[in-house]
């Protein structure tokens, strides 16, 4: 599904953030990237999604056998890469419904399909909104505007359910969430797991992994993956922190 080879990323000559990342995620696998603040976790998530504030100086990102390093974020998204944002942007005057319909239609049109009818989309949307327990009043407001932290994350999960991506990159989706919201996120992820879908979960803490069991855990420190293992590794970090790696 996703293969990252010797990825180097910087924002200037002085500030190198990722220093040779190798990662191989097969279909159906759940990978967790754990690391202390400033280790480059979020950068990795953003670079996979195609954010242009970062400069990829070396290496390649292969998604389903295509090198996507040159593609624009929307092209990557239409290929099936979804990123759940740590801080989703607020878009005044745009309703979540309208936004998601545009997103769904963009993908369909790029695949040579027709736009979804309003009726068809509405019932699909309502069903998914129900699944993530999102308050319907929220969906009448502007996208993310004035949403609480938990509401924003639920809304991210709603989008993930509606867009049905192939690769879900979750950028610290658990930060600032209470246990109830954490469960919602976990349910959304667990409900989407399949042999054709992979997850990359970026997190600082182990607690989300109580609910979503990763197949692989990687520890990212100072721009490098310093250790990889299975779920046991996450528990170990929970116990002794990152100090051993610094």
């Amino acid at each position: 599904m996703l293969k990252i080879n010797d990825l180097h990323v910087d924002i200037s000559d002085e500030e190198k953030i990722l220093k040779g990342i190798n990662l191989n995620i097969n279909s159906g696998e759940i990978h967790a990237i754990m690391g202390p603040n400033g280790s480059g976790k979020s950068t990795l998530a953003n670079v996979i999604a195609g954010r242009d504030t970062y400069n990829v100086s070396d290496g390649e990102i292969i998604f389903q056998n295509d090198d996507i390093s040159e593609l624009l974020p929307d092209e990557r998204a239409r290929k099936g890469i979804f990123m759940a944002f740590q801080y989703p942007a607020e878009i005044p005057g745009v309703r979540p419904w309208q936004f998601l319909k545009t997103a769904v239609d963009s993908k369909r049109i790029s695949e040579g399909q027709k736009e979804m009818s309003v009726r068809e989309f509405s019932s699909f949307f309502d069903q998914k909104a129900n699944e993530v327990g999102i308050n319907s009043n929220l969906l009448k407001r502007s996208l993310n505007e004035g949403f609480s932290g938990g509401e924003k994350k639920r809304n991210e999960m709603l989008q993930m359910l509606v867009l049905e991506p192939k690769l879900c990159v979750m950028d610290e989706t658990d930060s600032g969430l209470d246990v109830d919201a954490l469960k919602i996120v976990a349910e959304a992820v667990n409900g989407l797991t399949s042999k054709e879908r992979s997850f990359l979960i970026v997190t600082h803490y182990q607690r989300l992994l109580d609910y979503i069991k990763p197949d692989f855990v990687h520890v990212l420190v100072n721009g490098k993956i310093v250790q990889s293992g299975n779920y046991e590794l996450a528990l170990e970090i929970e116990k002794s922190g990152y100090e051993n790696y610094l």
Binding site: A49, G50, R51, D52, T53, L72, P73, D74, R76, A77, R78, F82, M83, F85, Y87, P88, A89, E90, I91, P92, G93, V94, F99, L100, T102, A103, S106, K107, S110, S142, L143, Q159, L163
Partner: peptide, 29 residues
């Protein structure tokens, strides 16, 4: 903002449509 554009584009919306969506939303009142 770049954050707004990236957010919309990450959902598969082209840059042109993303701009249009942000501006129309902003003009909604």
């Amino acid at each position: 903002s770049d954050d707004q554009l990236f957010y919309l584009m990450q959902r598969g919306i082209s840059e042109e449509d993303a701009h249009h969506m942000i501006i129309t939303g902003w003009s909604k009142d």
